[in-house]
Nucleic acid binder design. Structure first.
Lengths: 264, 264
DNA sequence: CTACCGCTTCCACTGAGTGGAAACCAAAAG
DNA sequence: CTTTTGGTTTCCACTCAGTGGAAGCGGTAG
């Protein structure tokens, strides 16, 4: 058919998934009408699909009548990339024990870093990310370290975009950022200083997998600790090596990869 | 393909969800044919739906051509019950710091406990559960403590089923179990001794929410520590109280509830 | 009371979904 | 080399599941 836009919400599957994704934006529970708006579907269609999703436990309905993502979905999704996360978790925990600081492990997903593991220190560091959350690469230490070791074309592709500024300290000049990445590669670690949130700084080292960069392992600290950040490098490097060893046998091409731009 | 009385996949939605759930059993990546078998769908249908799910990142295809649940799904699902988990996590971590033992938080999902948070101790306790995993209620301390404080009809319904035996020490006699539950209620905590895995024991206290039992908070220890388990009770109770306070305002009817028996 | 808003139900129409079959591809067997 | 085997991908005519406008329902505000 000579429709206007490309196949957007044509198939039933796409409608179902659009409904699920509608919950990604708002952190609060959604009413049926809101879901319909968020997914761009007519109300009655939304109603029917939502009902079925609820039956299966993929959505759940609160007392107020609003919907949320169901625990069933969460439970099922725990199996995604489980090998990797199970293998890495104990080591991230070790890192936390060794340093006492907020410890995190992140991978690249498209143009952002996705945090797959995180242990919060007792000190109240301004929290910018969470497990399952994303942040731009150029503002975070884990992101920078991944970018620094990433293949050439990824790096250039990234730098050719408009880089958003999170705080006044975020580095967004492509030229200077490129230099910084080179330096990171030389010294083997990346740092940030209040580039994503005021009050916190971070440091990260690469985690390799099959020769390529696989993930970033890092710490978040209070800005006041910035001067002594590097004393954690031995711990970071040691744990990174352990993670590399423990995950070497796991095929994670499937985890990363694709991130093919999908139609909104 | 045997018989045709399979009343399963009527709607497209159900087919899609069946495909996703096919991944719950096997921890390894699945081939297209395996998915078709696991979900009970014809191959060509499976092929089409799987392709679309892959486009959206809900499934991902490994180098070997096999499929896995996609990280996109995991990321999205992190939003399910996030309020609750985010609120509880730091306290579970506190519990771990205080005790140094494997700490866990679980809720009831149907006739099983679902672990929503868990921090592994350094000591190598036989691991029976994981975050996102389930275990029968009568074999675990968190399960027993939840059951003990659960409404009458839930308890009786549970005891009227055939209780499976995990180890030789699992209590499966309904009468004796009922007595045990009464006692748990009296003393305010539950324990197990090698009832789910040989070599480990556990202790748990209730976490209340809006008057009703909401979750179970527990520790897993080596059997050798069984004698001194109760010394952790103050920590458990203290943390439990903190969790109760921190989650009091969160509506979690939506999280629990339903677990309506669905067609297999 | 009426107006409004959001949820639920209904149902005639139709094109998206279906799945058997055949083509395809790669690797193992002859 | 050819044949076989096992899984994956493509094709396409049929039809039934999905659709969505509209009407009905129920609670709340004015």
């Amino acid at each position: 058919m000579a429709g206007g836009s490309r196949e957007s919400g044509r198939s039933v599957t796409s409608r179902v998934l659009a409904i699920l994704e509608a919950f990604e934006q708002s952190r609060t529970a959604l009413s049926l009408t809101q879901i319909a708006e968020g997914s761009g579907l007519p109300l009655s269609t939304t109603h029917r699909l939502v009902a079925e999703l609820t039956d299966w436990g993929f959505l759940s309905r609160g007392a107020n009548g609003r919907y949320q993502l169901g625990i069933r979905l969460w439970e099922l999704a725990q199996n995604a990339g489980r090998q990797l996360r199970d293998a890495a978790r104990p080591f991230v925990q070790d890192l936390f024990s060794l340093t006492g600081e907020t410890s995190q492990l992140a991978v690249r997903e498209g143009h952002e870093v996705l945090y797959i593991e995180r242990i919060y220190g007792t000190k109240r560091v301004p929290r910018a990310s969470r497990v399952g959350g994303r942040l731009p690469m150029h503002a975070t230490a884990v992101g920078k370290v991944i970018l620094a070791y990433e293949e050439e074309w990824v790096r250039t592709a990234y730098l050719n975009r408009q880089l958003e500024r999170s705080t006044a300290h975020t580095h967004i000049v492509p030229g200077r950022l490129a230099e910084e990445l080179d330096q990171i590669r030389e010294q083997g670690y990346a740092t940030t200083l209040e580039e994503v949130r005021l009050g916190s700084c971070s440091i990260a080292v690469p985690v390799f997998h099959t020769g390529r960069i696989g993930a970033g392992l890092g710490l978040v600290l209070l800005t006041s600790q910035a001067g002594t950040m590097t004393r954690h490098l031995p711990a970071l490097r040691g744990v990174s090596a352990q993670i590399e060893r423990a995950t070497a046998h796991i095929p994670l091409e499937s985890l990363l990869g694709s991130h093919a731009a999908r139609k909104t």
